[in-house]
């Protein structure tokens, strides 16, 4: 029982986080607005929402341009997810692109960024603008509904924990490799290779979940991206580590060579991963000029689920390593008894 609690906790966390990640509804959001350039004068746009309830509530529709709001002069709601709004666009709006803001009770303020092009830039409208609308409360526990991501945002709770777990296992392997050089014990060497094996399992899972996500959002199974290069290098390094082990038959020599390569490769890999985002463009959030997830996720509903998933998967990874390590220890004892 003494060593059982963290395994139960890891399982519970993964289970809870996975169920929450798949079951939590997305926040209502505006996903599409038609309409060409909005020149000054009358313009109408048809708006499509996702998980919205336009029928149930008095809906107010606004344009926002450079901090100035223009309310729709008329709004026709077709059903829960479709409406048509007509705007009297004033002269002199400041920015190139106007955002569409829809305020509905229980939905908060839903915004479609850069929805309409403003062909005639000015220095700010004088007439026909209103104050910023009240934000309104958003009801319930929902995930953020982001452009391009939409429902795939749930994958954050599966894809990212895989990489975190992989890094943890590689760090464990690194520590055991240092111990090999110090002690020369075969058991430490076996621990190092078992941690690498487990880390490769999580790397493969990370690659699969990432590839599916990339197909859905960036429309390619593999894209040229700093983080993807980092992942490729990491997998190649540890596959090379296994090849190196396979090509040496002398056990003591194998332990030492593998440990040296592991230490060398781990440090360089860390440097690479830290320096890389500054060298090449990235589509990932939080690098290459893209905003991080925390900036999207203002209501913090994704954060606890994500942290639970990370902790849980790290626990599962450590558990896998722990089982293999114990197996290696039994094998080691068996070998020693046979030699005696």
């Amino acid at each position: 029982m003494r060593t059982l609690w963290w395994k139960i906790m890891a399982l519970a966390l993964v289970l809870a986080a996975s169920i929450t990640a798949l079951r939590t509804p997305l926040a209502p959001a505006i996903v599409y607005a038609s309409g060409g350039p909005f020149a000054p004068g009358g313009n109408s746009a048809s708006v499509i929402g996702y998980r919205t309830h336009f029928m149930a509530a008095p809906v107010r529709v606004f344009l926002e341009n450079g901090g100035q709001f223009v309310e729709a002069s008329s709004t026709v709601v077709a059903d829960d997810t479709h409406l048509t709004a007509r705007f009297e666009v004033p002269v002199g709006l400041r920015e190139d692109m106007s955002d569409l803001v829809v305020v509905a009770p229980g939905h908060g303020a839903m915004r479609l960024f850069a929805a309409f092009y403003n062909p005639e830039k000015g220095t700010g409208a004088v007439d026909g603008v209103t104050d910023a609308p009240q934000q309104g409360e958003r009801a319930g526990f929902v995930f953020p509904n982001r452009n391009i991501l939409y429902e795939t945002i749930r994958n954050l709770n599966f894809h990212v924990p895989m990489w975190f777990t992989m890094m943890l296992l590689q760090t464990i392997s690194f520590v055991f490799s240092i111990k090999v050089l110090g002690s020369g014990r075969w058991l430490d060497d076996r621990a190092a290779v078992q941690a690498v094996n487990a880390s490769l399992l999580f790397a493969i899972l990370g690659l699969i979940t990432g590839s599916i996500w990339a197909r859905a959002t960036w429309s390619g199974w593999w894209t040229s991206d700093a983080k993807l290069n980092g992942a490729a290098v990491t997998v190649l390094i540890y596959l090379a580590y296994l090849v190196l082990r396979g090509s040496v038959t002398d056990l003591a020599k194998r332990a030492r060579l593998a440990a040296i390569y592991n230490i060398f490769a781990y440090v360089l890999m860390l440097l690479f991963i830290m320096a890389l985002p500054r060298m090449t463009a990235s589509l990932h959030p939080g690098s290459g000029g893209n905003p991080a997830f925390s900036q999207y996720d203002l209501d913090d509903s994704l954060r606890p689920v994500f942290y639970a998933a990370v902790l849980g998967w790290m626990g599962i990874g450590t558990w896998i390593f722990n089982l293999q390590y114990r197996l290696a220890r039994i094998e080691n004892r068996h070998d020693e008894e046979r030699l005696r």
Partner: peptide, 22 residues
């Protein structure tokens, strides 16, 4: 490392390539 492993230039390419990438 490759010389110690006694596996010549083939192993060196495998071990060196991912490390020289940065």
């Amino acid at each position: 490392i490759a010389a110690r492993a006694g596996n010549g230039i083939g192993l060196m390419a495998i071990l060196g390539f991912p490390i020289v990438l940065p």
